[in-house]
Amino acid sequence: MTCIFGCDIFEGNRKSILVSENKNMSRLRQEILRAFLETGDILSGEGLSKRFGVSRSSIWKHIQGLRDQGYQILSCPKLGYRLVVRPDGLLPAEIRAGLSTKIIGKEILHFKEISSTNDLGLKLARQGYPEGTLIIAECQSCGRGRLGRSWISPEGGIYLSLILRPQASPDLVPFLILLAGVAVAKGIRKILNLPLLLKWPNDLLINGKKVSGILTEMEAELDKVNFTVVGIGINVNVRADQLPERPDYPAISLMVEMGREVDRRPLLQEILLAIEDGYLEFKAGNYTSILEAYRELDGILGKKAKIKTLQGVIEGEAEGIEKDGALRLRLSNGRVKRIRSGEVIL
């Protein structure tokens, strides 16, 4: 079964071909880029040719390919090539440079544009892609949020999905939602020092405005999760006029809040590292530490709230989350209601 907490991408062989092309680009081009990032100095065409076992003309072709992607690479006569300017892209080599994770980002697939990273993540998970596979896109044409809502995904944001294979029972999956939210919050707080808080179950707010959301989907048996796909969308360098207009639930981007563009690479790396830290706690059965981390960032604790559920709207005061991740709501009659799924409106 497929469970969702919270348009097809490619058809038939075309999907497999595009994923294969994305992986193979080029592996060589990504390795050349990684060599530039690691050395920070001039690299000779002859040296690159010997290092990767290809002709110098092939090296030149991939250098041109990197230039086409926005990398400014100078040709230094009789010396080689020097990387002088990097675009604000999230290519695999850029992400891996300095990333110290062991699980998350084991495989990275990057797309300039895709309909939905989660849709592709589900398909690749069924094909057996390994745990930690990261699918990332510069923009999405059909991004999805919880409850069937669309997620507006223009260029400049961070839109990613992670394939996880937790070997856990389905009732523990809510902890993955919580740890993902905590990881995004920690990453943004550490890199940008913004007062970001969590709104149960999966939204992240800055001064009451939504900056990020999480969609977790899984396929499972009755007693075992086969895999989960954790989708994360963050409004990073998104202009105010590109944000969705919902008077009852305003959105914001990190760029709008900071008054400047944000370097997405270190932010993404910090978030991925925080996800891995939380996921290792999850795999070790340390659910209490995940709950404690969430409670420290709980943005609705003690506030009056309306909860939209399938059964209707419930009003009360949020008293935090319980040990299974459910929201504890104090009703006007003094009774306590446990909410397992719903949308909080403050």
Rank of each mutant, 00 (worst) to 15 (best):
F5T: 10
F10V: 07
S16L: 13
E21G: 09
N22K: 14
N22R: 13
N22Q: 06
K23W: 15
R27Q: 13
L28W: 00
L28C: 05
R29Y: 01
L33A: 05
L33Q: 03
L33I: 07
T39H: 08
I42Q: 01
I42T: 02
L43D: 00
L43C: 05
E46N: 14
E46V: 11
L48K: 03
K50W: 01
R51H: 00
G53E: 06
S55Q: 12
S55A: 07
S57F: 05
Q64P: 05
G70Q: 00
P77A: 12
P77V: 04
L83P: 04
L83H: 05
V85G: 04
R86Y: 01
P92G: 11
E94N: 15
E94Q: 14
I95T: 03
A97F: 13
A97P: 12
L99S: 09
L99K: 11
T101L: 15
I103R: 03
I104E: 04
E107Y: 01
E107V: 14
E107R: 06
K112S: 15
K112D: 09
E113D: 15
S116F: 08
S116R: 06
N118F: 09
D119I: 04
L120V: 09
G121W: 10
R126Y: 07
Q127C: 11
E131P: 07
E131Y: 04
T133S: 13
G145P: 13
G148S: 14
R149A: 04
S153Q: 04
G156S: 02
P166H: 10
D171E: 15
L172M: 12
L176H: 12
L176R: 08
I177P: 08
G181Q: 00
A185M: 13
K186D: 13
K190L: 15
L192D: 01
L192V: 08
P195V: 05
L197S: 11
L198G: 11
L205G: 02
L205R: 07
I206D: 06
I206P: 00
N207Y: 14
G208D: 13
V211H: 01
S212E: 01
K224L: 03
N226P: 05
V230Y: 05
N235G: 07
N237H: 03
N237F: 03
R239T: 06
L243N: 00
P247R: 10
Y249N: 05
Y249D: 06
M255L: 03
V256A: 06
G259R: 00
E261P: 07
D263E: 15
Q269S: 15
E270F: 12
L272S: 11
L273E: 10
G285P: 04
N286M: 13
S289V: 14
I290S: 09
L297E: 12
D298A: 10
G299L: 00
I300S: 00
I300C: 03
I300W: 01
L301V: 12
K304R: 11
A305H: 03
I307N: 08
Q311M: 15
G312P: 06
G320T: 10
L327E: 06
L327A: 05
R330H: 04
L331D: 02
L331G: 06
G334I: 00
R335Q: 02
V336A: 06
R338Q: 04
R340V: 14
V344C: 12
